[in-house]
Write a protein that binds this DNA or RNA. Structure first.
Lengths: 172, 172
DNA sequence: CTGGTCATGTAACCAGTTACATGATTAC
DNA sequence: GTAATCATGTAACTGGTTACATGACCAG
């Protein structure tokens, strides 16, 4: 039983992330939101125009976001911010236990669950190369907050540790 | 430059996982493939009929899978196996470094990148509850191989460790 | 004056979702 | 006999993708 009038179905990951970006980076343009997704370390969200603009239009229509026109010189733009409903929805997303507990998608995990399809040699070499590639080429999300980069590195290290421990189990 | 005649675009995660299932579990039905996805620890793939049957039809048409009719009593079914092309495609997927290095989607990671939107108390409590929920209620993929359950537990523990270390950084 | 960035959007397409529909077989 | 499971599929919908298109502004 919600106290809400409307059905208030909970936000998707893309919607929640979008609201979080807009909340953090103040009134900002859809272009900026796209940019954040484009520079994110995961390639799950391409941040394509065809995804972001319609999404934002939808959120505005649902009263989650409000937009206001602005211009810098002759160049026009739209500044987005959260409505009160939007703030509530974001809070709900941030504190959603079921969703947060979800293990999501990890391509290496999928592959290791099929470890019987590799030879041991193959697997060892594959894991080594892949983890090397990850450490060298997955970019941190760009942020003014210096901790974001640090946190990113911690994530990568833990992922590597997990993969290597699983590899041990498989090979032992 | 491929030695292939056909374009051979690489498999998606769902396609690769599907081939891996069929390869591991011998000639099997689409129904079985669905079942594996339905019981997987991640809810990324629902294993809905509307996803699996068309996917398999597609893979058959592309010469990746071959199907053969079978019946148990009056009940008809289709048994799937990989073609030679399919074996090659699967190998390619299993050994794809770029894809394996991808960090994919992790709902908790997304949220922790927006840690400034929580109060410290809120965040501590959220993480604790969420990790508890994960350890208690994310099912291991069902498999005859006993290591699969063990590996699953290792993954969960590492994920918790990662989340907790990141939390330390945020709160310090 | 050219290339990069800021800025917004659309169109065709694709792959997944939920919900529906059917029917045989097996276990209680 | 009835509920669960095995088995296959479709239809309407949703929400992403790539590719295309336009235009202002700024730095060299």
């Amino acid at each position: 039983m919600q106290t809400q009038g409307k059905a208030e179905k909970s936000l998707t990951e893309l919607e929640g992330s979008t609201l979080a970006i807009i909340k953090k980076d103040g009134p900002c343009t859809p272009y900026h939101v796209r940019d954040v997704f484009k520079c994110s370390p995961s390639d799950i969200w391409s941040g394509s125009a065809g995804a972001v603009y319609p999404l934002i239009k939808r959120l505005c229509k649902n009263g989650i976001l409000k937009s206001k026109s602005d211009s810098v010189g002759k160049r026009k733009r739209t500044l987005l911010s959260l409505t009160r409903t939007g703030e509530r929805a974001l809070k709900g997303w941030l504190l959603d236990i079921e969703s947060g507990a979800e293990i999501g998608l990890d391509p290496m995990r999928s592959r290791l669950h099929s470890s019987t399809l590799y030879t041991k040699k193959e697997l060892r070499s594959y894991v080594k190369k892949t983890m090397q590639h990850m450490m060298n080429s997955i970019p941190a999300p760009k942020s003014k907050d210096p901790r974001v980069a640090e946190i990113h590195q911690v994530w990568l290290s833990h992922r590597r540790a997990a993969v290597e421990e699983v590899l041990e189990i498989i090979l032992r």
